[in-house]
Structure formats: C-alpha cells, structure tokens
Simulated scan of single mutants.
Amino acid sequence: MNADRAQGLVASESLLRETLDYLMRLPVNPMTAQLARKIRTHLEDPAQAREVRDAALVINAAEQNRDLRSGVAWYTAAGLPALEVVVGAGCSVATISSPAARLYGGASAGKQFSKKLIDSLIAGQRVALGPHEPATAPTIRP
C-alpha cells in the first residue's frame, strides 16, 4: 500500500465515523437505523481495523521518510538493493547499507556477492540520490 492509498483509506474511515455519528443523532427511523448498523458493522470488522492500522503505519513511515534522499548503486539478480545510500535533507551523515546482504544473512550472502560489494566500495561507487522509497523484500519461495 502506498502513502496516497493509505491516506485515502484513513480519510474514508474518518468520513464513515462522521457519517455514523450524524446518523445516530437523527430521529429514529428504520432506514437510518439499518444504515447506521451497516456502517458500524463495517467499522468494527477486524479486517477493516487492521487495514486502517496498516494505513496509519504507512502514513507514519512516509512522514518519517519525507526529508530523506536515497539511491541504489546496483541490484541483485533477485531485485534487492545490493548497495543503498540514504541521506537526510540538510544532514552531513549518510547511511550506507546492503539490504540484500542483511536479508540473506550478512557475510553468508555468498563470497562472490560479498567480493563485488567490497570491490564497489573500494573503487568508489557513485550513487544518484532521489526521494527515499524504502526497499521491500521480495517474497522468498522455498
């Protein structure tokens, strides 16, 4: 889920809660009561609550990453960032990491991969920076 979709989901949830509150203040009417029950059931659904919690986490992460710039030097064959650089706006510190090596167990990621990673650092690796989008791990199949 991206931040825009998450914000839309949270806004829809808020609108439904506002609508329910309004319906509950109207004079009792079978149609109004039925619609209010339907909205309440939807809002109380555990799957819906989980979606809204997940959306809030996505929004929070997007806010934290808003001022970050990042770039990836190269990717593994599996599509993971092999060498990633993240810099905060106005900061004098960069974080250099290897999400691929972290996912696959650090030094046990393989001698060939480790050698390529070290060689690229020794040689000096240029990395173009853009808006930070945290890497997500691909689904690993047994």
Rank of each mutant, 00 (worst) to 15 (best):
G105R: 10
G88I: 06
D21Y: 06
E84R: 09
A135G: 13
L43S: 07
L15K: 02
G130A: 14
V87A: 08
E63S: 07
S97D: 12
R69G: 04
A78I: 04
V10D: 01
A109T: 15
Y104T: 04
R50S: 09
A123M: 01
I122H: 14
L129S: 13
R126A: 07
A62V: 00
Q112D: 15
A101H: 06
E13H: 13
G79M: 09
W74H: 11
D4L: 00
K38G: 07
P30M: 06
A109R: 03
Q125F: 13
V58S: 02
S98R: 09
E44F: 02
A49F: 00
H132R: 12
A135Q: 12
A137L: 13
R66P: 03
S114E: 10
A6G: 09
V72Y: 07
A101Q: 10
D21R: 12
D4V: 05
K38M: 10
S14E: 10
K115G: 10
R69S: 08
L121F: 14
D67K: 08
I96S: 05
A82P: 11
C91A: 09
A128N: 10
Y75L: 09
A56Y: 01
H42T: 01
I59T: 07
L129Y: 11
A33G: 02
A123D: 14
A123E: 15
V58A: 02
N29P: 14
P30F: 08
A49E: 13
D54C: 04
M24A: 07
P134A: 13
P131V: 01
T95L: 15
S70I: 11
Y104C: 03
D45P: 03
A78W: 04
P142C: 01
E84Y: 03
V58R: 05
P81K: 03
A100W: 04
S98V: 05
I118S: 11
W74S: 02
V72S: 01
L80D: 04
V85Y: 11
Q64F: 00
A11K: 13
A123I: 01
I140A: 01
R66K: 05
A107N: 15
V85Q: 08
V58Y: 01
